[in-house]
Amino acid sequence: MTATDQELVARVLEGEQQVFAELVDRYQRSVFNVTYRMLGEARAAEDAAQEAFLRAYQHLSRYDMNRSFKTWLLSIASNYCIDQLRKRRLTWLSLDEPLPPHPALNSSEVGPEKAAVLNEREQAVQDLINTLPPDYKAAVVLKYWYDMPYAQIAEALDTTESAIKSRLFRARQMLAEQARMGGVPSLIPILEGA
């Protein structure tokens, strides 16, 4: 029988450090997808995902066993990414710069032609998401990639349900505006084709 997250956490807290690898195996994809969607770049996303797991390990004793481990982990990952994006904004270049597609997107099972179209589409969506402020981006990622209800997103981002409702509304408004104004050039052919 597969051990629950809580059982694994308890074993790690008792000193079985290697058991944490099982939790990493279980949630590496989820955490990586959040960091990738938030940061939009594979290398930075991988580093952020690793950092999120390390932080989870460091603060494992603070984890509330009544909460979902996945939500707790995703909250660490998304908050870390929000911090990174804020730092980037202070020190860095424009977020509109085109980002290379993740290698995993190229290695799909579909044919090369379809894969190219899908990559183009993925890129357009990523470009669109990149136009959002970090807090809005986190809400959108948790909503669309994890299908989380308002309450769970609010728990992960340590805020209220009404704040999440408002962030999603504002984010969609901004995305629609970007699409309408042609702010993301790669999106225009997709929207026209729709």
Binding site: N33, R121, V125, Y144, W145
Partner: peptide, 8 residues
């Protein structure tokens, strides 16, 4: 578009 994103 947002809902149909592939997993990486």
């Amino acid at each position: 578009m947002l809902s149909n994103q592939r997993e990486v």
